[in-house]
Computed example of a mutant assay.
Amino acid sequence: MQKIYSFLKYIIPFSVVLFFVQNYIINTVFEKSLFFYSTWSIYLFHFIITVLSYLFLLFVNKTFPDKTGFAFMGVSLIKMMAAVVFLIPLLQSDLKNQIPDVGAFFIPYFLYLLFETFFAISLINKH
């Protein structure tokens, strides 16, 4: 339970800071661009999927500690597929320039992946 609190202690401020930075950039630099997804929906997706995947990694680490690395790779694949499913409405939309939307999604995606990788490595190294 302490590992969950430790993870939440770091991911919540991480998410809040990233959200406000991205929201500021979108509202100042890209103020004339129309985005398909709102910033909060992107961050809600990333936050939920990252917390759920870390909870799964904790479960695997507790029951099968030697399989945590494989579980991380599997969860990463599932997260990638979930990202594609999340982006399907954007890709099927009539929006002329989808590149800012894709960037607004994948920049935090990779930052969350880096964050989760750091915590997954610390789980793997403890066993």
Rank of each mutant, 00 (worst) to 15 (best):
L52M: 13
S93H: 04
L57Q: 03
L55K: 09
Q92G: 14
A83P: 06
F64Y: 11
T50E: 06
G74A: 01
F64L: 10
D94Y: 09
V75T: 15
S76T: 15
G69R: 10
K67F: 08
M73C: 01
P65D: 01
I42H: 02
L58N: 06
F70E: 13
V60W: 03
F56C: 15
Y43Q: 05
F56S: 13
Y54M: 13
Y54D: 08
T39G: 02
N61T: 04
F45C: 02
Q92P: 03
L55D: 08
I78S: 07
P89V: 07
H46R: 01
T50W: 03
V85T: 15
V84E: 12
S93D: 07
I78Q: 03
I78G: 03
F70V: 07
F56H: 14
V60H: 03
T50H: 09
L77C: 06
W40C: 06
F86P: 10
K62P: 01
Y54K: 05
S76F: 12
M73E: 01
V85C: 12
G69F: 04
N61W: 11
F72E: 05
H46D: 09
Y43F: 15
K79S: 08
M73K: 01
I49E: 03
T63M: 08
F45D: 06
T63K: 13
I48Q: 02
I42M: 06
T63W: 09
M81F: 15
V85M: 04
K62N: 15
V51K: 12
L44K: 01
I78Y: 02
F64D: 06
T50F: 04
L55G: 10
F72K: 08
I49M: 11
V84L: 15
M81H: 02
F70A: 09
T50A: 14
